[in-house]
């Protein structure tokens, strides 16, 4: 390209020499470093560590007593993993508002809709079964505001 500016009067001026360099790089790179440091900071503590996911324990006395083929939950495993909170909420509404404690699971098996008497009967290990995963994904269900974890009390009574 022509390195002179021209107009009708001839050469108007030399094309300015703009230096090719990094301008204000100090601030911009500092900003970039601060940005990435802040964004990744929550991840540093576990970098390179393998963190195993919790495995809910099923070795309670009530479950051990059952025959292998009867060790089934009120709904299939995959459903319970994702939807147990919804199921409990439906039970609550049915029981508290409708006075209905009958729940029919797959295959026509009848259950009593009750967190303490049905769920916690088999899963008497609340800490290893419920709390472990709840803590892992940082949820604090309001269930335990009313429903008591009886295991400790029963152990003390014995």
């Amino acid at each position: 390209m022509d390195d002179k500016y021209k107009n009708e009067f001839g050469v108007f001026a030399e094309r300015p020499k703009v230096e090719k360099k990094i301008y204000d790089g100090k601030y911009i790179f500092l900003g970039l470093i601060i940005f990435f440091a802040v964004v990744t900071s929550p991840l540093w503590q576990n970098l390179g560590k393998a963190i195993p996911a919790p495995v809910p324990k099923l070795d309670t006395p009530a479950i051990q007593k059952l025959a292998e083929k009867d060790r089934k939950c009120v709904q299939p495993l995959a459903f319970m993993r994702a939807n147990h909170m919804q199921l409990l909420d439906t039970w609550r509404t049915e029981v508290v508002r409708g006075g209905n404690r009958d729940f029919v699971g797959p295959g026509g098996v009848k259950y009593t809709a009750s967190l303490q008497n049905t769920c916690l009967d088999c899963h008497s290990n609340k800490a290893q079964f419920c709390d472990q995963c709840h803590n892992y994904v940082a949820v604090t269900p309001t269930c335990w505001g009313c429903h008591l974890d009886m295991t400790q009390k029963l152990a003390e009574a014995k």
Binding site: L43, N46, L47, G48, K49, A50, I51, A53, P54, A78, R81, A82, N83, Q86, C133, Y136, V137, V139
Partner: peptide, 24 residues
């Protein structure tokens, strides 16, 4: 709904550079 424990297992795998494929 999805299995949130499995999601966290996957996400932590990514975050710790120990990636794994999590089923379900």
């Amino acid at each position: 709904k999805v299995d949130i424990v499995a999601v966290k297992d996957l996400a932590l795998g990514l975050a710790t550079f120990k990636p794994k494929v999590v089923a379900g």
